[in-house]
């Protein structure tokens, strides 16, 4: 008998009688979208992220230009922000990605209660990019903020692409004496632009 059969057989003998699956019936405490934006901002900033609301993307375009002039390796993945870095693809080697200073990525959705942003694989171009870049910038439509995770899971399809992530702030650790240090292995900073254009 294979291990698979042994395990499944043992479970069918040892499991208790079927218990009903409960319905998740949690309502958001606020119905106002403006509250969600405020909560998203407050929460993300409390966990080390930065949030800036913009009514025009020109600011970001200018920022990218300046950084490029300054010699930084900037990766832009959003056509609306100008030239896109086509060298970034799903099979690019880690040793090349490691040199990225700052990456601009589009987010799908923000979650007010925990300050996280959902990123689909197609938005990050390469799974490693949002982790291996030194600094991460996410551009998110301000209307794409939902109150909580329950609502978020109603709206995203986790299995639509091979990979997706809720990302909440810069990489961090408190493994040394519970002292919070930002910038463990992933990006050292996270900036979210909430765009209302």
């Amino acid at each position: 008998m294979s291990s698979r059969e042994k395990i499944l057989g043992a479970i069918s003998i040892n499991k208790p009688e079927l218990i009903e699956l409960p319905v998740i019936d949690i309502k958001s405490t606020s119905v106002l979208a403006a509250d969600w934006v405020e909560q998203f901002t407050k929460t993300l900033e409390s966990i080390g992220g930065k949030v800036i609301q913009l009514s025009s993307i020109d600011v970001i375009k200018e920022e990218i230009q300046q950084a490029k002039i300054g010699g930084e390796y900037i990766v832009n993945t959003l056509p609306i922000l100008g030239e896109v870095n086509n060298e970034i693809n799903s099979t690019m080697e880690a040793s090349l990605l490691e040199t990225v200073d700052r990456a601009y990525i589009e987010g799908s959705m923000g979650v007010a209660e925990n300050g996280s942003v959902w990123l689909y694989e197609h938005q990050i171009k390469n799974r490693l990019l949002p982790f291996i870049c030194q600094h991460l910038v996410i551009c998110l439509n301000v209307n794409k903020i939902v109150p909580n995770l329950h609502e978020a899971y109603k709206q995203i399809d986790v299995a639509k692409e091979g990979y997706g992530v809720f990302l909440a702030g810069p990489s961090k650790t408190a493994d040394i004496e519970q002292s919070l240090v930002i910038g463990a292995h992933g990006a050292r900073s996270l900036l979210v632009y909430l765009i209302s254009e």
Binding site: S90, T91, N114, G162, Y163, V165, P170
Partner: peptide, 23 residues
């Protein structure tokens, strides 16, 4: 919602990665 709040008091872990297919 339960995990990170119970573990460290964070609203969510920094990265909650959903793997469905190999790249």
């Amino acid at each position: 919602r339960l995990l990170a709040r119970s573990a460290t008091g964070q609203p969510i872990t920094t990265y909650s990665s959903h793997f469905h297919q190999p790249r």
